[in-house]
Design a protein around this nucleic acid. Structure first.
Length: 818
DNA sequence: AGCACGCCGACT
DNA sequence: GTCGGCGTGCTC
């Protein structure tokens, strides 16, 4: 009788041991666990396999990381079962999972879970059966005896079935029954059948005549068989029945006769074949560089700088080349939406097997896509950030488009930066990386400057550089230079109500309207007012659950919290002193529209932000595109309609560089979005004009923006990052703690600070601890928030990630500190 | 997740 | 003394 739960002592048993990543999502960091391998598994256990193990008193699955003849742990539990012999995660991806877990302090189990087929844990079933060969001498408790008796009657059953038929308390006695050997336990992987049904002919075509003879009195069945024979392949059930105008019963009869079989087959979703994008070939200089780059052996990163369409041409040529050489390609985009449009362009321009990884497809499609990629039949995977975890083998090229996009930084889960994960994935498999951008991120360009990445400038950028050189400006913004005016809003004369428009922007708009032109006004806030104040007692409306002020929205006459979406209607009187004199400070899109309406009563004005219903939004955009609307006021939401924004005037109502906010990437974001706006709005206009209203005209990023010089911007920004110890100058970790009780949050934050400080004494090395302090958003959704920010070198900082207990959120290289 | 262990206050 | 609630940390 085998006691499957016995522990193994290393001293007495020189057997085989497996290092396992257990699917427990709260073991932080890259910690793994060691289990002994029973003799029955020694010749079939491999890294990447899925196994069942006991963890604490839970039954969990895990993935084998390595197999060795010794274990660093004295006493080990046994591997209980190999769930399937398939290698679900290849060694390269195991290494990637470990790297992410270590560098971001994320649970290794979480990474493993994201790499396994979707929803895999739902398909793992634990089975129990009474072992008839075992004798019942053991002293069983009443409950155990009852469980055993029921199990004998039921036969082998899954845990879920047992739970239903014998109840929770009996089910708990199972583990003891297993350890005494009276009950056997094993695991099965029951993956759902996926794909649609296909009909297959059983006999050979030569036998067709003979088969048809027996169907003389069944014309429909004969017809089905004839069509099937003519097609000479498996035919989808639906298609076959439609073609023969037959019903399901005829098909069932054919199956009963044993003439056909029906099986499920997964076919990848058909690619969307729109009219092919008219693509010019990639520009020669850039392509020569990329080609040479791809020809060199091993891992290297190159930054491709150019306009969207130009980069796409290079991507496609690069994919063709790599696939022709037998390599696989990953194409990563910041959002699902962008991934889909990249997929459409690539799939219709490349002669390779291209699939789109998306969350919006059905579960079975996702599973099918995962399998197809794993099997190696797929050449190119296109997807949003998480597609860097796709199960690709023979990976030769990773393309990360819009590498500067902030959405690559995950805001939940592992909180990894998926651009960095993609680069690491390529490095592990010695694949090449192309980072595509029009305005590279500070981190990426820093790597260019330090000669870790190579810069490839496309002619669209190169031409601009030449044009700019003549007027003494650097490269970096695309499209004609145009005129840029920066208005100092602290001293500028204002027009209209609400302090929204400067005279300069007003006259620019007036000019533009008189010449029947169009204008885009960019505002960085939705709603009407950022602060609603009582003019008599000074009362201001705050969110009851957060530390934020409520924003007034005109349309619904309500007050909205932009952090938690708490809403209430705007009262007529001040809740404190009953005064009716409520005043609105600051402005958003609504206030700008109202102010403009008063100044330009005859002009049609459109508004585009996330408050506008999605269906209405595209109408607004189209109406602007055809000229029915002359002024468009919007937030960054307008980028969704980037192709419809072409205008003569671009007004930035308030360029806020985030001074006074703990958001060190704010200047980067301002530069990025203003440059992008300028390309999208004024790109085609020789005489295009841009007016930037700002309270900080002397801020280096404002100066760089007005001259359109990327280098100027980069220099000033990297200087400030170095000065403050922000990434990429050093590694930074933010430890965040939230609690209903503000005092408790404060205490906990101080406790962690002490723990971190003593850790620094142990290791002698230095790192800087900022705080503990309440966060800028000190209360959110009824929780008080405290944080600690640590910066130092990579090695040092990684060692701190394990210290905080559960409840702490760890954010490595956060994008803001709000 | 779920259990053990330890600390502290309230009770026999 | 001892019981039990809760917070914390561990699971090979």
């Amino acid at each position: 009788m085998l006691d499957s739960n016995r522990r193994t002592d290393r001293s007495t048993d020189a057997g085989l041991y497996a290092e396992i990543a257990v699917a427990a999502s709260n073991v932080r960091g890259d910690r793994s666990f060691h289990y002994s391998v029973p003799n029955e598994f020694t010749d079939r256990i491999y890294p990447g396999q899925l196994v069942t193990v006991e963890f604490g008193n839970r039954l969990l699955h895990g993935v084998v990381l390595s197999v060795a003849n010794s274990s660093p742990v004295y006493s080990t539990k046994p591997v209980l079962d190999i769930i399937s012999d398939a290698i679900l995660i290849d060694p390269g991806r195991l290494e990637l999972a470990r790297w992410v877990a270590r560098n971001y302090g994320a649970p290794l189990g979480l990474l493993i879970e994201t790499m396994l087929p979707p929803r895999l844990s739902k398909y793992i079933k634990h089975y129990y059966a009474a072992d008839p060969s075992s004798n019942y001498e053991e002293k069983l408790s009443a409950v155990e005896a009852k469980t055993l008796k029921k199990l004998t009657v039921l036969g082998p059953s899954a845990y879920e079935t047992l739970e239903k038929s014998i109840g929770k308390s009996c089910v708990k006695s199972l583990s003891h029954l297993v350890s005494t050997g009276v009950v056997r336990r094993w695991t099965e992987l029951e993956m759902p059948e996926i794909g649609s049904q296909f009909v297959r002919m059983v006999s050979s075509p030569r036998q067709l005549k003979h088969d048809l003879c027996q169907l003389k009195r069944a014309p429909k069945q004969a017809e089905l068989l004839r069509v099937l024979a003519r097609r000479a392949t498996d035919v989808p059930v639906k298609e076959l029945l439609a073609e023969c105008r037959a019903s399901r019963s005829s098909l069932m009869a054919l199956i009963d006769r044993g003439l056909v079989t029906v099986n499920r087959q997964f076919r990848l979703p058909q690619r969307v074949t729109k009219e092919d994008d008219v693509l010019q070939g990639p520009d020669l200089d850039a392509w020569n560089s990329i080609e040479a780059f791809l020809d060199r052996d091993g891992h290297a990163v190159s930054v491709l700088l150019g306009a969207d369409a130009d980069r796409l041409a290079v991507y496609i040529a690069a994919i063709e080349k790599v696939v022709a050489g037998g390599g696989k390609v990953m194409v990563i985009a910041p959002t699902e939406h962008e991934a889909e449009s990249l997929f459409n362009s690539i799939a219709s321009n490349v002669s390779a097997y291209v699939v789109l990884m998306t969350n919006s497809s059905t579960v079975s499609t996702k599973l099918g896509v995962w399998r197809s990629i794993r099997s190696g039949e797929v050449d190119v995977v296109v997807g949003p950030g998480y597609a860097v975890y796709a199960p690709m083998t023979r990976l030769a090229l990773v393309i990360i488009d819009h590498e500067e996009d902030r959405s690559y930084k995950e805001r939940r889960g592992a909180r990894a930066h998926l651009r960095q994960v993609g680069i690491r994935a390529a490095r592990i498999r010695r694949a090449a990386v192309i980072l595509g951008s029009e305005t590279p991120s500070i981190e990426t360009f820093d790597n260019v400057e330090k000669e870790r990445y190579r810069l490839i400038l496309m002619s669209s950028a190169g031409q601009l550089r030449r044009a700019r050189m003549r007027v003494g400006r650097g490269w970096g913004a695309h499209g004609p230079a145009g005129v840029v005016d920066v208005v100092d809003m602290r001293v500028a004369p204002l027009m209209g109500h609400g302090g929204v428009l400067s005279e300069e922007l007003f006259y620019a708009l007036q000019d533009c309207m008189q010449q029947k032109g169009r204008a885009v006004l960019f505002v960085n806030r939705r709603g009407a007012a950022s602060l609603t104040v009582c003019r008599d007692c000074g009362f201001s409306f705050k969110c009851p659950d957060c530390s934020m002020y409520l924003v007034h929205h005109n349309r619904s006459s309500s007050l909205v919290c932009h952090t938690c979406n708490h809403r209430k209607s705007l009262p007529k009187n001040c809740p404190d002193c009953r005064s009716t004199r409520l005043r609105f400070w600051g402005y958003g899109t609504e206030a700008v529209v109202n102010s403009l309406k008063a100044l330009f009563p005859t002009i049609r004005i459109g508004r585009l932000d996330s408050d506008v219903a999605p269906g209405v939004a595209s109408t607004v955009a189209e109406s602007f595109e055809i000229g029915a609307t002359q002024i468009l006021v919007g937030t960054s939401y307008i980028f969704r309609f980037a192709s419809k924004l072409s205008s003569d005037l671009l007004g930035i109502v308030q360029a806020d560089v985030g001074i006074g906010f703990p958001d060190y990437t704010a200047p980067e974001r301002v530069f990025q979005s203003l440059m992008r706006l300028r390309r999208k709005v004024l790109g085609g206009q020789i005489d295009g004009r841009m007016v930037i209203q700002t309270l900080f005209p002397e801020h280096p990023v404002m100066l760089a923006t007005s001259s359109g010089s990327y280098l100027k911007y980069f220099r000033s920004e990297i200087q400030s990052r170095i000065a403050h110890g922000f990434p990429p100058a050093s590694r930074m970790v933010r430890f965040l703690y939230s609690n209903k009780d503000g005092e408790k949050a404060r205490e906990e934050a101080h406790r962690l600070a002490e723990n971190l400080k003593s850790a620094s004494k142990v290791s002698h090395k230095g790192f800087r601890i900022l705080g503990p302090a309440p966060c800028f958003i000190s209360r959110e959704r009824r929780l008080y928030r405290w944080h600690l920010v640590v910066s130092g070198d990579e090695e040092e900082v990684c060692s701190l990630l394990q210290i905080p207990h559960r409840g702490w959120v760890i954010d490595v290289d956060p994008v803001d500190l709000l």
